[in-house]
Write a protein that binds this DNA or RNA. Structure first.
Lengths: 273, 273
DNA sequence: CGGGACGTTGACGGTCGTCAAAATTAGTGG
DNA sequence: CCACTAATTTTGACGACCGTCAACGTCCCG
């Protein structure tokens, strides 16, 4: 069992620390094997994230084999892009630390945040179909990713059935997630959208050992609004309403959920007979 | 070169015909090999849809190998479901004829159309991640699909690289498509949404040999509205506005696009300097 | 031919976008 | 470390867009 409160403190204080791995609190040895000052080799088999990331469901022997899939790691400064719309697709990226947004743009300049990704999640799937990326992936805080060249993934997933299955599941999961966002964008009102958003975020953070009730937003109100199909003012107002109703405490980007059930009721109004 | 007008007539008149293959006009022998009255064997290598469907990019010899992927065909009556939310996932389905919608539902009953699928497109990808489907696939007209058991797909895609690549691309394409829908739902107004919807439909139909300017809607105003995040009245009103503006002719579900550029301008307003 | 599903149109109201201003915070450079 | 500027957030007033409700018209199918 993790000590969620302590971990949240970690989350809050160590945000931009390069040394710590704030998002996952599992006590194992570092998975980094220093080769020399320039090339860094990473081993999935030791990674803190192995239960959440690519290798899920692999046996220890299979796990060792896919260490080869990860070519290297890459650090992304806050505000920098991991990849950009139009760039050649070569690799998928597993997030080790940090927080990303992905966003697409229409030709006339409007853009839409299509997702927020945290440690253990995979980005870059959009690039497979046309060999070019169709969205931007931007780090919302200093981040580090494992670079996984896609041809190596394909090669190895021909031999390791569990990896093949896992790759398929990752892509299917993304499709299902986007289905959920479409439901949100297509049929929910502002309060429902924000409540669903908060519940989703806190649930994913909880799966990584953090608190069920506290979180730090890594994105601006405008980015939340873009994701939810709302304007930033509406996001701000809706936060204020939740505060008035005693459902959450909000101090800038620090959110404490006081009444999870109330949030769930907002998303899924109970029908009374 | 196809005779688009003739084909559109076909499309219109032969909608519910069991014998013809109205959506694709390529003159090849039927791809159906009758085994006996109960079991029907289908060969991708002869299929009209092979340039649009699963086998895209495969060599002739590879094509023959993947004939085994298709277990059988299945006919779906208009209004019937191919699969339903919660059902066990076993197969992907390639649409041979007919037109489908997929929709997800929230717990409190609201539902959202997540897509419309036509001949040559693949449905069922949502089921991979949890071994159960998370949406309904409903036939909007009498339809026929090729049933492709997913374990066979996985098996064969370990051996046929081009098939592996193609499966990945199909899933990636669906992710990219949904990104586009999120942009639409999150940042476009009613007119823009409907214009984008019409352009998308007609473009896909054109790729199948139909007219660039005429189409028959297989879905109700309510289903269009659900897909676009609008109410059916708004869809109807927006159609009427397009008619008033001379952009389209609408007679019930028969739509003729009079000014494609105007539609494109609505989706992507030109900036004047 | 009749009933039901589907589509159209109008009137009105609510939700959320727009514009604006002020408050608070974060980031930068001296 | 502090001052200054930019970025972000909050709040208010107002209006537009679209949803709701209702009535009527049309088409399809049995």
């Amino acid at each position: 069992m993790y000590h969620a409160t302590t971990l949240l403190e970690n989350n809050m204080k160590a945000t931009h620390s390069e040394e710590s791995h704030p998002l996952i609190a599992v006590k194992v040895a570092s998975n980094v094997i220093e080769m020399n000052s320039h090339s860094i080799k990473v081993a999935c088999s030791n990674c803190n994230l192995r239960e959440l990331c690519m290798p899920l469901g692999l046996s220890p022997t299979e796990l060792e084999r896919i260490d080869d899939v990860v070519a290297n790691r890459r650090k992304i400064k806050r505000g920098a892009t991991l990849f950009r719309n139009g760039e050649k697709f070569t690799s998928l990226y597993a997030i080790r630390t940090g927080f990303f947004k992905t966003c697409v743009a229409s030709e006339d300049g409007r853009d839409q945040v299509t997702g927020f990704q945290m440690a253990g999640e995979i980005v870059g799937l959009d690039g497979i179909v046309n060999e070019h990326h169709t969205c931007d992936a931007v780090a919302l805080e200093d981040a580090e990713v494992c670079v996984m060249p896609f041809d190596r993934i394909e090669e190895l997933s021909r031999e390791v059935n569990a990896l093949q299955r896992h790759v398929h599941k990752i892509m299917s999961r993304e499709i299902v997630r986007e289905n959920g966002v479409m439901l949100l964008l297509g049929s929910m009102r502002a309060e429902e959208r924000l409540a669903a958003f908060l519940l989703n975020l806190v649930q994913r953070l909880h799966a990584r050992g953090f608190s069920q009730s506290e979180l730090i937003l890594r994105m601006t109100r405008e980015e939340i609004g873009s994701y939810l199909g709302l304007k930033l003012e509406t996001v701000s107002r809706t936060f204020s309403k939740f505060v008035d109703d005693g459902i959450v405490e909000v101090k800038q980007r620090h959110v404490r959920i006081l009444n999870t059930d109330a949030l769930k009721d907002i998303v899924n109004p109970k029908v009374c007979n």
